[in-house]
Design a protein around this nucleic acid. Structure first.
Length: 784
DNA sequence: GAACCCATCATTTTT
DNA sequence: TGATGGGTTC
């Protein structure tokens, strides 16, 4: 086949029977998959209708869809390109009834799952200390991923006290989901398997339909996904899986690396094709990655190679602290940008989400636009969830979680007591909550709120009518109007409220887009798309911005310039992996490192800090072991000083000059990153970050941070003092009428000082932001 | 019913 | 450090 190397070509041509493609990073995997589909259709005359391609993310699915559309002339749209979950939803919507369910089920996301678990724990009177909701949820999820019902789970765990409790929670949890006519993400797969097991005739329909199956990122599949694929492929056995065991980084969420490692045992007649030529990175970068991953045991034997030039060496630099690290990363970014390189060609990768904060701060100061990839999504925002709560209730009145969410939002005087009475009544009479509300007059003790409840149910009925008559956009408009949601926000008038309004506008855009772009727009499909396509990254990709993301989110992407920050023991590899008794935990971290390195095409810079603030206290850090695993001849070490070395009194020396940026050695202020002239933190600053929904919380349009002082908090010297054992607080050297300077709010006049215990409460009228009340010990005001 | 205050607790995440 | 949730108080 044209433009493919020998092995890629082989992978495309081998169409009958099981095939395992071990595709190293950057080896042209998506290319192979799309060409393979084209080959099936055009050369083998396979009906596109009989082809199924499964990916993990919607992004990957869309990308594959596009590329298939481009190279396949005719019938490409009949190929099923889908994620596991959306495939299952499609199947379940058709057949849920034979499982005794309802076809218009709601899909619960993690937040809604938590709410259910919380209620279950309360009902079962379990101490949330011993049975934390998070842990319960993950236990339930693990059980479902292993295809274990509560009974089987209990059995498997050997009927010990704890597992019996968990099984009890699991059982009750399922019961509630069923009552609410809802499924969680794991259920989507679980129920589909159940459907196929109990109804072979239905399985047969899909086996006949999907004669050729391809699964991407196979190393990320969990047990149920493995089962599902196995069932679907059992009849024709034309199963092609693609993956890279070295890029398996999702064990924590159930991915089973043995699915790929043991593929040949599961399918002894499987053909194996290895794609080992990397087309992405320079030789130095690639070999650095090879050097690191070579330290893992139990991998498939393969070695990536390239015919590209050596390129620049990998740079590693250790800085004094995380601020200095961030400044230098930003400086390099600005430098590259100054040389005409696009910001969209650069990415900063880190292990944990909270590391983004400091990088964001420094980017803002330097005026460099960025976008946060991943993190808290658009659909997690309160205002979005609220409005969607209405849509969900209209869609499925059994959805108690959504009803509870909106019944008093915005406030309409229906309190917890009333709600609990209704729910209790509903349980006692074995009816759903909404029906109970319809009988509010008969519920003892709920008379006072009866009027309000009736108004609420009327509202839902009205909304349903509007939806049925005028469609989705009208429904959205009606929700906003009849709940007064937007007006309440407008009345608030704060920046936060403004940003929430913007987010609602964005939601409306999405709904309008959906309604206009869909042949048969309906609420079920809209909500489904929203639940299953949590990515808010649709559209607005054209801007030139630096990408910030976790190493996990970076998988599947590539950038010419990559910065991996926080290369420190216990941060990366994470402390948890080091303390774990599972030796694979560290190996997974190493794979993550491998993934990170292999994202880079031209330039890779690693960095660390020798001290870092972790959970409120300053830690001394050793450089990550992964640095040492990169062959010496491929890496250049720079650095402010040797890692792990830090003079304590260095902090002390800076005390008192906190109006400077907290930085050493002539960076910061002197190199153009200083506070002066930067865009500023306060209200009204430009929307850096993803201004669409203020994802970072630093761009000024944030909805996440609620108080004005929450974001971009200055690096107050409190922690520095405590490092030296000095008491914070203490006396103040200004009085009423003095002019003082605040690190964030700037200049102002002291209006009032009140002594409160060991501290002072100070009211200052700031030139820029007006009056603020603050504690002297925290405000660190400087007399001018 | 809502505003505070204090204690607690912190990976990675897509669907 | 910081977010978050439960409990308390008005």
């Amino acid at each position: 086949m044209e433009g493919l190397n020998r092995f890629q070509d082989e992978a495309c041509s081998y169409t009958e029977g099981p095939l395992l493609i071990l595709a190293g990073a950057g080896s042209g995997k998506t290319r192979v998959l799309t060409h393979r589909i084209a080959h099936l259709i055009e050369d083998k005359s396979v009906n596109p209708y009989n082809i199924l391609a499964i990916t993990f993310t919607n992004k990957a699915a869309n990308e594959m869809r596009d590329r298939v559309d481009k190279i396949v002339g005719y019938g490409a749209e009949s190929v099923w390109v889908s994620t596991f979950h959306s495939m299952c939803v499609r199947i379940l919507r058709r057949h849920m009834e034979v499982l005794g369910g309802n076809n218009n089920f709601t899909i619960y996301d993690t937040d809604e799952q938590k709410t259910v678990v919380r209620e279950v724990l309360k009902l079962l009177n379990l101490d949330p200390k011993q049975y934390p909701e998070r842990g319960m949820l993950s236990a339930i999820s693990k059980a479902k991923e292993e295809y274990l019902t509560p009974d089987k789970y209990e059995q498997e765990q050997g009927y010990n006290f704890r597992s019996q409790k968990i099984a009890e929670v699991y059982r009750e949890y399922q019961k509630r989901l069923k009552q609410n006519n809802a499924l969680d993400f794991d259920d989507l797969i679980f129920k589909t398997i159940e459907l196929f097991e109990h109804h072979p005739e239905i399985l047969d329909i899909y086996q006949e339909r999907f004669k050729y199956i391809m699964v991407d990122e196979y190393q990320d599949t969990n047990h149920t996904q493995f089962m599902l694929v196995k069932m679907l492929a059992a009849k024709y056995r034309n199963l092609c899986v693609v993956g890279d065991d070295d890029q398996s980084i999702y064990k924590f969420r159930g991915a089973n690396i043995y699915n790929i490692l043991n593929f040949e045992e599961e399918y002894p007649d499987a053909k194996v094709v290895k794609l080992e030529q990397n087309y992405r990175s320079t030789a130095n970068i690639l070999n650095a990655a090879n050097g690191v991953i070579a330290n893992n045991e139990g991998r498939k034997d393969k070695r990536l190679w390239t015919d590209k030039e050596d390129g620049e060496k990998v740079v590693y630099e250790c800085f004094d602290n995380e601020y200095s690290e961030a400044e230098n990363v930003v400086r390099r970014i600005s430098q590259l940008n100054g040389q005409g390189k696009n910001l969209s060609d650069m990415a900063v990768l880190y292990r944990t989400n909270n590391q983004s904060r400091i990088i964001e701060e420094k980017l803002i100061m330097a005026g460099v636009p960025y976008k946060l990839v991943g993190g808290t999504g658009f659909y997690d925002r309160k205002e979005i969830r609220d409005v969607l709560g209405y849509l969900k209730t209209v869609h499925n009145r059994d959805d108690e979680i959504s009803i509870r969410r909106i019944i008093n939002t915005p406030r309409r005087g229906i309190g917890d007591t009333t709600v609990n009475r209704i729910v209790e009544y509903a349980y006692q009479n074995n009816i759903d909550m909404f029906s109970a509300m319809d009988m509010i007059d008969e519920i003892p003790g709920a008379q006072r709120a009866a009027g309000k409840i009736k108004e609420f149910t009327e509202l839902i009925y009205t909304l349903s009518d509007i939806y049925n008559r005028d469609g989705l956009t009208a429904l959205y408009e009606a929700v906003i109007e009849k709940t007064d949601y937007a007006n309440i926000l407008k009345a608030e008038g704060t920046d936060e409220a403004k940003s929430r309004l913007e987010n609602l506008e964005e939601l409306k855009n999405k709904i309008v887009n959906y309604e206009e772009g869909s042949e048969y727009p309906n609420l079920t499909e809209l909500l489904e798309e929203i639940s299953l396509v949590a990515d808010a990254d649709t559209g607005i990709e054209q801007d030139d911005r630096v990408s910030l993301m976790t190493l996990h989110s970076a998988k599947g992407l590539e950038f010419p310039y990559v910065f991996m920050v926080g290369m420190e023991e216990r941060l990366f590899p994470s402390g948890m992996s080091l303390d774990s008794d599972d030796p694979d935990a560290l190996e997974e971290e190493r794979r993550l490192c491998y993934v990170g390195i292999t994202r880079a095409m031209k330039e890779l810079r690693l960095s660390s800090a020798s001290t870092r603030m972790v959970n409120g206290s300053r830690n001394y850090c050793k450089e990550s072991r992964f640095i040492g695993e990169i062959p010496k001849n491929l890496i250049v070490r720079k650095g402010e000083r040797a890692p792990g070395y830090m003079q304590k009194n260095e902090f002390g020396g800076r005390r008192g000059s906190y109006d400077d940026d907290y930085s050493f050695g002539g960076f910061g202020g002197s190199s153009g990153f200083g506070r002066s002239g930067s865009q500023g933190y306060g209200s009204g600053s430009q929307g850096y970050g993803d201004s669409l929904y203020g994802s970072g919380g630093f761009g000024g349009s944030s909805a996440k941070k609620s108080t004005s002082s929450a974001s971009a908090k200055p690096y107050s010297s409190v922690s520095l003092d405590s490092l030296k054992g000095m008491p914070s607080g203490g006396d103040i050297d200004y009085k009423v009428g003095d002019t003082v300077k605040h690190i964030k709010f700037g200049k102002g006049t002291v209006k009032e000082i009140v002594k409160t215990g060991s501290d002072y409460e100070v009211v200052v009228d700031f030139d820029r932001v007006g009056e603020k009340k603050m504690f002297a010990s925290l405000a660190r005001l400087k007399k001018l």
